[in-house]
């Protein structure tokens, strides 16, 4: 009993996330990372505020689900905090390091859930054949329509397209990540372009109509 009470009092004092000196918004990412490695929780907060939304969008491009995207990035920050002491000292581009980590975690997430497609899938040829036809037509902005058109691609095709065009990964990286040949990556890119070209015509027509 003695020990229980003592432990609890000690724990109450040594909170897991110690308060710390103020962190300025002008500190560079590198400075923040150094302070993080020393165990300053405020440095984690600032890095989180700087990168959370961006990284969630990276994950979103892969998993296409807001809740899952946020979970993946939450776990990324938990792991950054837990492994703070062993983070590299000479990390120069924190932003691209974090984005790469977000991409890898998203891909692992899909892989663990067997959500990396094993076949090419069918390209929808009519509006009615689109799973997300309603999504596509309900979007009022061009950006939303383009998102919906990309989402309408068969999953493997969509992943390849997103990884290449938006996440700017090389064909070799994509081939490795999805366990397909570089040739397949190229084929999927061609398919994606052909599909998007056709759909963009329709999308633009709808938009023009609405604008009138």
């Amino acid at each position: 009993m003695v020990y229980i009470i003592h432990l609890l009092l000690i724990n109450a004092e040594n909170s897991t996330l110690p308060a710390s000196m103020s962190i300025s918004k002008h500190e560079t990412d590198q400075e923040l990372f150094t302070r993080l490695r020393l165990g300053e929780a405020a440095a984690l907060d600032e890095l989180f505020r700087r990168y959370y939304a961006d990284l969630c969008r990276v994950a979103m491009r892969f998993v296409n689900n807001e809740q899952e995207a946020e979970d993946i990035i939450q776990e990324l920050f938990v792991s950054i905090w837990e492994k703070r002491a062993s983070q590299r000292k000479d990390l120069s581009a924190i932003g691209s390091y974090l984005r790469r980590a977000a991409r890898n975690r998203s891909l692992n997430y899909l892989r663990d859930r067997k959500r990396i497609p094993v076949d090419d899938g069918e390209v929808p040829t009519t509006i009615a054949a689109l799973d997300k036809a309603d999504d596509l037509l309900e979007q009022s902005e061009l950006r939303g329509r383009i998102d919906a058109a990309i989402d309408a691609l068969p999953e493997r095709c969509r992943l390849v397209f997103v990884m290449s065009k938006i996440e700017e990964m090389s064909h070799k990286e994509i081939a490795g990540a999805l366990d397909i040949s570089p040739k397949t990556v190229e084929n999927q890119m061609t398919r994606a372009y052909r599909f998007l070209r056709e759909w963009l015509v329709i999308l633009l027509l709808i938009i023009l109509q609405n604008d009138w």
Binding site: L17, F48, A53, E70, I73, Q74
Partner: peptide
């Protein structure tokens, strides 16, 4: 229109402060 591709999913803006609170919960 390819210029619009990089904005794919830019419309998603998670609540950062709520996310930070959740992160603290997870770490605790």
């Amino acid at each position: 229109h390819e210029r619009n591709f990089p904005s794919y999913k830019e419309g998603f803006s998670p609540d950062v402060e709520a996310g930070l609170l959740r992160l603290k919960g997870r770490i605790e």
